[in-house]
Every structure is written in C-alpha cells, then in structure tokens.
C-alpha cells in the first residue's frame, strides 16, 4: 500500500497519470450534467405534493452530498499528509477547498430557495441546516487560513491540522445541534417522509450526483496541475545554479 502511494505521490508521475483522466472527466462530466439537467427540468414528473418545486431537489441533494464528501476527502488527504508527509496530498486537499465552498454554498442557497415555497420561510434553525451552516464556516476558515499564509510552508501544517481538528469536531457539532433541536423544536415543519421517491425521480438525482462528482474530479485535477506548475516555476527560478 505504502509503496504504491510512494510511486504515485510523486508529482511528475501524478501529472502524466492524471492528464488522460482529466481529459476524459472533462468531457464525461459536462455530458452527464447536461443529461441530468434535461432529465431534471423536462423529463421528470412534478411531485404530487410539492408540484414543480421538487425539481430543486435534483441540484440541492447532490450538492449537499458533494460538500460532505469533499470534506471527508480533505480530512483524509490532510491526515495522509500529516502522517506520511506527501506534499501531493496537501495540494489535493488545498485545491478541493474552493470547490467545497461552492458546493456548500449551493446546498445552502438551494435549500433556502426550496424552503420558501414548501415550508413558508427561507430559513429555519433546524438541525440539518444549522450543521450545514457550520460546515460552510469551517470551509471558509480553511480557505482563510490558506490565504493568510500565502507563499509560506508554515501554512501547510496549519491547514492540515485545522482540517484534522475540524474533522474530529464536525460529528460532535452535528450531534450537539441535533440534540439542541430535538429538545427545543418539535419536528413539525420539516417532514422528509412526505416525499416518496419514485424511480423517475431517482434517475435525474443520481445523474446529477455522478455529474457533480465527475465535475469535482475534473476541477480538482485542473487546479492541482496549476498548483504543481506554479511550484515548478518557483523552484526553477530559485535554483542556486540557475
């Protein structure tokens, strides 16, 4: 396992390996998202309770899944960086933060837009919404700590440790918010059991989820390539014998 990591954690090898994957992902993700959008907007039927607003689900739910998945990805790659000190994993983690911010923002925005016609308000201090807001702030914190240490390797470890502490803390935050909500607010407004998901709705949902996943991989690979190239340029500029 470790040997395998060592082989592909080398940035140069990673680039040659990633190039075809990136190109395929670029085409496939755009295709899948387009097909998913067509299914979501035109082909899927309106819900019998929520009517047309159910179409927001096809972008809201995959974005929420993605933001959780991306945090898990950041957490594990920064743990790998902290333990084995592969710089590649740090770059992977750092470059996924912006995408995570975008997806979390998407989930929050579409959630509140979905909430207005169904529950009557844009925002409820519900456990799930609150914990997502906290997740959004943790993402922003990661982004801030990246920017405030620009061009210094000190920030690398600060970033890694913050992702680590955040990873430990997120379940606790989620649990505490759940606890807080169940005591104070009877579950009257939100009832997820109301939606019965039929297969016609599952198709666009999964298409969008897969499309977002591929989009994430594509943007990530592009960003990593930019970062590696930037590093290479700085490295060559500062070589003593150059």
């Amino acid at each position: 396992m470790l040997k395998y990591f060592h082989k592909y954690a080398n940035p140069g090898k990673f680039l040659t390996l990633a190039l075809p994957v990136r190109k395929i992902m670029g085409i496939v993700s755009i295709g899948v998202v387009t097909v998913g959008l067509i299914f979501a907007l035109f082909l899927s039927p309106p819900d019998y309770q929520q009517k047309e607003t159910v179409r927001i689900m096809y972008i809201h739910v995959p974005a929420a899944w993605m933001s959780l998945m991306i945090y898990a990805f950041i957490f594990f790659s920064s743990v790998v960086f902290l333990v084995w000190k592969f710089p590649l994993f740090l770059i992977l983690a750092k470059e996924s933060v912006t995408i995570g911010v975008i997806f979390t923002f998407t989930a929050l925005l579409t959630g509140s837009l979905w909430g207005k016609p169904t529950w009557g308000t844009y925002w409820v201090w519900d456990a799930r919404l609150t914990s997502f807001l906290v997740l959004f702030f943790i993402y922003l914190g990661l982004k801030l700590i990246m920017d405030s240490f620009s061009y210094s390797s000190k920030g690398d470890y600060a970033f890694g440790y913050l992702a680590l502490i955040g990873g430990f803390n997120l379940p606790i935050i989620k649990f505490s918010v759940d606890w807080w909500n169940t005591l104070h607010q009877p579950a009257s407004i939100l009832r997820t059991g109301g939606i019965s998901i039929s297969s016609e709705m599952l198709i666009p949902l999964f298409l969008m989820a897969i499309g977002f996943l591929f989009l994430f991989i594509y943007i990530l690979l592009v960003s990593v390539e930019i970062n590696l190239k930037k590093r290479k340029i700085i490295y060559y500029k500062n070589k003593p014998d150059n």
Binding site: F137, I138, G141, L144, S148, F149, S152, G166, I173, S176
Partner: peptide
Amino acid sequence: GATARGPLLIFLSIPFFLP
C-alpha cells in the same frame, strides 16, 4: 505567523465552540 491574526483566530474558533 499568519498575517491578520486576530480576526482569523476569532473566525476559526467560533464554529468549534458551538457544541
């Protein structure tokens, strides 16, 4: 060692203090 440390510190710590 970060630039603009005070605001950053407050921003980072509040989410962790929530529970």
